[in-house]
Design a protein around this nucleic acid. Sequence first.
DNA 1: TAATTCATGTTATAATTCTCACATTCATGC
DNA 2: GCATGAATGTGAGAATTATAACATGAATTA
Lengths: 249, 249
Amino acid sequence: MARAGSAKAQRMERLQAELAQGRALHISAVSKLLEVSEMTVRRDIQQNPGKLGYLGGYVVPRGMFEPENSYTLDMAADQQRDAKRRACEIALRHVRAEETIFIDCGTTLIELVDLIPNDMRLTVVCYALNVAERLAHKPNVTLVMLGGVYYPASATFFGPEALATISSLGINVALLSAAGFDWARGATCAHFHEAEIKRKVMATASRNILVIDTSKIGRLRSVLFAESTSFDAIVTELSGDETSQHPAS
Amino acid sequence: MARAGSAKAQRMERLQAELAQGRALHISAVSKLLEVSEMTVRRDIQQNPGKLGYLGGYVVPRGMFEPENSYTLDMAADQQRDAKRRACEIALRHVRAEETIFIDCGTTLIELVDLIPNDMRLTVVCYALNVAERLAHKPNVTLVMLGGVYYPASATFFGPEALATISSLGINVALLSAAGFDWARGATCAHFHEAEIKRKVMATASRNILVIDTSKIGRLRSVLFAESTSFDAIVTELSGDETSQHPAS
DNA sequence: TAATTCATGTTATAATTCTCACATTCATGC
DNA sequence: GCATGAATGTGAGAATTATAACATGAATTA
């Protein structure tokens, strides 16, 4: 019987944590790290498809690459990923070099981080762990993180200090995401503390831009954080090449 | 003479575009795609370091991870890694369930995170990105992070809010690392802002424990953050099975 | 206790990838 | 036309990685 905390499961967890920053580890390094044979590493990964990728002789974080041949190919990848990336491409046009921007949490805006050119100088404020991880590698980005208590559900930090910090920052552009959006009701998200951060940021930032893929439209989540009219722009993957829609300008 | 739009440059551009979506292509696929031999693909990539990554037999997008770096970094870390892990094992005995602990930055105490049993309930305060990443996976750990501006050199965040937050926390045990330690001079680290955090934490915590491997002893770094006598215990990989040394108890 | 199962390690072998030296092609200039 | 040099291709052997079969050992069950 496979218990919850079996040796294998622990190894997988540890490996995933190890690769969280987007590093690749050679199988020999993994073998030493986990103190098991290389054979076991291979078997672990084969038997947990989807959790980690394997490429050549290297273990790589999942979701980063989709090798065609590798036996890790599980394609559980986000169906909306392309849509999200396109939306992010368009949203990025609202950002100019040397500005201070806020990047919200969620799977949508993570895509934006990769799209920031390496030579673009920016100050980026975030409160999601996975966003910070990726931003940490950008050479010309000054990363500011809001601290607090960690909420695994959204991979974010939250606390009174975070809220206080926000108002002390000068944010030019806030890029916000939403789990649901409705023109009549507004933008909603799933977690209360998330909403609190978003509201505070929106009150501070000069320009507020909602970045969503169209699958979010019409959906409703538990916490409303902004009216439709409070955004300076709403960007989706279908937003044209113009400066996109300005429902409230 | 290699012009800007040479065949090679064009291939590189095409490849980069192809891999932009985060896919990995096997070298044989690339060879067919670009209609050149596999040898040429290898040479192209070797001669354009930084543009594309190469891993096993696959061409991968660059920027997200550093295959070679991580490999060599791991090898370098391996030298003292066992020592560090042993020191952390011993240090962990100073921590009891339900307590609030502080975990310092650096390669030593990262090892400690993995050693925390999954069923141990703890509140952990940290300010290093890589420490947070690993802690985020622990089911019974309440993670508190100090926010601020990111410093790549030590992968930590620092700012006035961080310092203010520390004094508002009730920390039972502070596990501190040092880049250098000398019984006469005390504990030193390489970065000024790091020292500031350490000092503030030490002023707040009930028990301060220095965790170092013995290679640190005798070394001196630029910033002194604590006298030898200000620690309640100093733990190294050689610390015995007793409750370890108490130089200042 | 013996039988069974499962996870892991070991070994040998197969398949793949890497490197090197050398051959070929192509463009350029004399 | 010929020489030159850069870019590319080819093939053999070395090194690495993958696979499969078997061995070990611990935990489980009858």
